[in-house]
Simulated scan of single mutants.
Amino acid sequence: MEISFPQMAPQYDSECYTLVFPVQVDGKRIQCGITAEALEDHFGAASIREPDLVAAFCAHRGAIEDAAATLIEATHGVPVLLHSGVFRVCGR
């Protein structure tokens, strides 16, 4: 499975308190996300405000993309939402 992450800014979903980011999986674009809780608990986001979440995402983009890729592979290309528990299991 070929997975890549376009270097675009994540989009804030204020209804779900998540950041959504694009992923290319075998040439098809999907949308994945990470919760504000995960960004606060594991990546140092100061609050659920968009600027704080985006700053934490950008500072830890590699680790977030690695976790997303692992789950995308495990689910055979299905979009994933990264919760705080994912990073507890992964040791982050």
Rank of each mutant, 00 (worst) to 15 (best):
36 A>C: 09
82 L>R: 10
57 F>G: 04
68 A>S: 07
19 L>Y: 06
33 G>A: 14
54 V>L: 03
30 I>W: 09
20 V>K: 14
60 H>L: 05
76 H>N: 11
24 Q>H: 13
17 Y>M: 12
36 A>G: 15
22 P>W: 07
49 R>E: 15
38 A>N: 02
54 V>N: 00
65 E>C: 13
17 Y>K: 14
41 D>I: 02
51 P>L: 09
64 I>N: 08
49 R>L: 15
35 T>M: 03
62 G>A: 15
78 V>A: 11
3 I>L: 05
64 I>D: 03
67 A>T: 01
89 V>A: 13
32 C>M: 00
86 V>D: 01
64 I>P: 00
76 H>W: 07
50 E>Q: 15
15 E>R: 15
16 C>P: 02
49 R>Y: 11
80 V>A: 01
42 H>K: 08
81 L>S: 12
58 C>P: 01
59 A>H: 10
76 H>M: 10
29 R>H: 10
1 M>S: 15
48 I>M: 07
30 I>S: 12
21 F>V: 08
19 L>F: 05
50 E>A: 14
24 Q>A: 12
65 E>S: 02
79 P>L: 01
72 I>P: 00
48 I>D: 07
9 A>P: 08
17 Y>V: 10
69 A>Y: 03
44 G>L: 04
25 V>M: 07
55 A>V: 07
22 P>K: 14
70 T>Y: 06
29 R>W: 08
32 C>N: 06
74 A>N: 04
39 L>F: 03
79 P>K: 01
78 V>R: 13
3 I>A: 07
63 A>S: 12
42 H>N: 03
68 A>Q: 01
26 D>K: 04
46 A>C: 01
49 R>A: 15
32 C>S: 13
2 E>L: 12
46 A>E: 15
70 T>E: 09
66 D>S: 12
53 L>I: 05
86 V>R: 10
20 V>D: 09
65 E>G: 05
40 E>Q: 13
11 Q>T: 13
27 G>A: 09
15 E>S: 15
37 E>A: 11
73 E>I: 00
58 C>T: 13
2 E>Y: 08
65 E>H: 14
51 P>W: 05
49 R>S: 13
16 C>V: 10
2 E>A: 11
35 T>Q: 06
52 D>S: 07
65 E>I: 01
13 D>V: 05
42 H>R: 08
19 L>K: 13
42 H>P: 00
63 A>M: 09
79 P>V: 04
90 C>H: 10
33 G>P: 13
32 C>A: 03
91 G>V: 03
4 S>P: 00
6 P>Q: 11
42 H>D: 08
60 H>C: 09
65 E>L: 04
13 D>N: 15
31 Q>H: 14
88 R>N: 10
8 M>P: 03
15 E>F: 11
65 E>K: 11
50 E>F: 06
38 A>G: 06
52 D>F: 04
41 D>P: 00
57 F>Y: 15
87 F>L: 02
48 I>H: 12
75 T>P: 06
11 Q>A: 14
43 F>V: 03
24 Q>N: 15
7 Q>S: 11
8 M>R: 14
2 E>D: 15
37 E>W: 04
12 Y>N: 13
15 E>I: 05
52 D>C: 02
74 A>C: 04
34 I>W: 02
68 A>F: 04
